[in-house]
Design a protein around this nucleic acid. Sequence first.
DNA 1: ATTAAGGCATGAA
DNA 2: GTTCATGCCTTAA
Length: 102
Amino acid sequence: MTDKQKRVYKITSLIPLGFVLTYKKLAQLSGVKNPRVVGNILHKNTDPQNIPCHRVVHSDGSLAKNYAFGGIKKQEEKLEKEGIEFVNGKVKLSKHLWKIKN
DNA sequence: ATTAAGGCATGAA
DNA sequence: GTTCATGCCTTAA
């Protein structure tokens, strides 16, 4: 596993309950150039237990089209279960976007 | 809203 | 080693 992947997974696993992160943000936080790569990495994640990829969403708050772990429905389900609000099938980013402190 | 183009890590051939 | 396809994307037109 490469360093990038580690960072991506690490950060993803650090997302607090009730918050989400966009691919773009996650990308820049982990030092990856393109958000696409992040998606790719998350897609072949092997440890869903520690990697809550359902907390990672698109820039506009919508969910990924091919959620690798049970489908987009499951993802939404999980998010709601964690207290994340949906509006128009999108996450309320303004409220649930994870802002890193420092 | 839909389409097109950008850009790159990963894996198979 | 390199080329090609693919992807949980983003932004701009």
